[in-house]
Simulated assay, not measured.
Amino acid sequence: MAVAAGAIERAAAPAGDGAVPLGDAEFRFLRDFVYEHCGIALGEHKRQLVQGRLARRLRALRLPDYAAYCALLRDDPHAELGELASAISTNVTSFFREPHHYELLENELLPQWLAHKRRDGDRLRIWSAGCSTGEEPYALAMVLAEALERHGAAAVDAKILATDLSPQALETARNGVYPLDRLGGIGDERRRRWLLRGAGEYEGYACVHPRLRELVTVQPLNLLHDWPMRGPFDAIFCRNVVIYFDQPTKQRLFGRYAALLRAGGHLFLGHSESLHGISDDFELIGRTVYRKRA
């Protein structure tokens, strides 16, 4: 079967078992392509990782070698972009990862925000940028739903936006179905309230409660491209995402985050990430928690 415009012919049998070499020219092309479209900087030390990770894509697409894969990317850069980004990045996430962030939301930020929004009739918006398979936004939704009830703020227009580039991760996030062994960060009371245990073909899985689905909107988004949303957001969670970016890309990204956050809005980063020397738009107020300067 030919790729569009007949650029290359796909192999009749699957390839990419790890023995197919990644040549110098192909690695340079992939390195430049990934940086341009995803902001991910791949050094020479990542060459073996790229070769191993993309071997699965060669098999899936029935391509004979990496030259054919590069030709596919040249022919239609966007069709394969999500799969490529997913293959070369590590989507590690869990429910209530870095629990001090959720504690700050629950005990301090949400009570303050909801008091103001009930009074002013304003909306509340949180963005999970790089949501991966959805554990982060659904954990946020649990905390938010409980706060709305606790503070008598059911009338407040409150939503969580969850975005990612990986098609596979987004599919899992939309489904909201997780193996029971992935629920370790959720306490027993929240498990009983917010998760529906599966039966039959879903034995060993749990599905998030419909109330959480009401609060979470899952959408594809490339952080380097145009953003359709206008904000403003009260908080942005961008945790363990910018570890793949170089300094100029981080500076541009955090500048765009600052533009979408309310004055005094909060930015949450991963445990190994920092804004030191990158952005003056924020002040550090806690462990990997930043507040937008007025």
Rank of each mutant, 00 (worst) to 15 (best):
A87F: 03
L61A: 12
Y202E: 14
E98S: 15
F245S: 02
L148F: 09
F33V: 06
S166W: 02
Y290R: 03
A85T: 15
G286Q: 00
V143M: 07
H116Q: 15
R10S: 10
A68V: 04
S132I: 05
N240A: 13
E26H: 13
F29S: 04
L223H: 06
D122W: 08
D181C: 11
Q251Y: 10
R191S: 10
G16L: 02
L72D: 00
L221F: 08
V216F: 07
H209D: 14
L260A: 13
P14M: 04
A68F: 03
P210Y: 10
K46A: 09
R125A: 14
E189N: 10
V34C: 11
E36D: 15
H37F: 12
R31L: 04
F254P: 10
G184H: 05
D281Q: 11
V218P: 06
R211H: 13
P210V: 12
R190P: 12
G265A: 06
G286I: 02
I126F: 15
I126E: 13
E98T: 14
D234S: 08
D280M: 09
R97V: 15
L140D: 07
E44I: 13
L49F: 03
P99Q: 14
V20K: 01
H45L: 07
L183G: 05
Q51P: 02
G270W: 04
L148M: 10
A5V: 01
K117T: 07
E273L: 10
G6E: 00
L58R: 04
E171G: 12
L161H: 07
T217I: 06
A60L: 12
D188P: 14
F95T: 14
L215D: 04
F245N: 02
L54I: 08
K292D: 01
V241F: 13
R190Y: 12
A85L: 01
L73C: 08
A41C: 07
A206D: 08
K117E: 08
G277K: 08
G52D: 03
N240C: 15
I160P: 07
L73P: 02
K46L: 12
D122F: 06
A169E: 01
R230L: 14
F254Y: 14
L267N: 10
L212M: 05
E136D: 04
L42R: 10
A13H: 10
G39D: 02
A13W: 09
G23Q: 09
